[in-house]
Design a protein around this nucleic acid. Sequence first.
DNA 1: GCCAACGTTGGC
DNA 2: GCCAACGTTGGC
Length: 150
Amino acid sequence: MNYWLMKSEPDVFSIDILKTKKKSGWDGVRNYQARNFMRDDMKKGDMVLFYHSSCEVPGVAGLAQVSKESHPDPTQFDPKSDYYDPKATKENPRWFMVEVEFVEKFNSVVTLHTIKSIKSLENMPLVKKGSRLSINPVSEKEYKTILGLK
DNA sequence: GCCAACGTTGGC
DNA sequence: GCCAACGTTGGC
């Protein structure tokens, strides 16, 4: 099993929305590296740290689990969607997503500030300046360390 | 709202 | 293939 961190702006999609919906496709990713993780590497059962970005208190807000592996992101075909990609076709989709399932909302957010203060988490891309990738692999140790902080 | 860091686009 | 211009991310 592998572990991941996925960023989302809570104003757009939060752990609370996932809790209500139970399951959701992780649509709207338009970065090739992040897409490749979803298309090639994320497997059913993998655990996901659900990270809230661009908000008052950035940090890991809860847990999700991959419930369906790679399939085309339908928003790329929808001209009305913000994520519409005119160069994508159903025969040759450009963007892929996984589906995630709600697991847990933490009682309190494990804040970026806290994560930055933990020596053993210093190699997480999250704490590195200028790291903008919205999906990152997480080691088992890092995953467990973060769970210990909730 | 600022701005550093990074990714993408497109002219050449 | 280079690289300047532009757009986006995301913490602060």
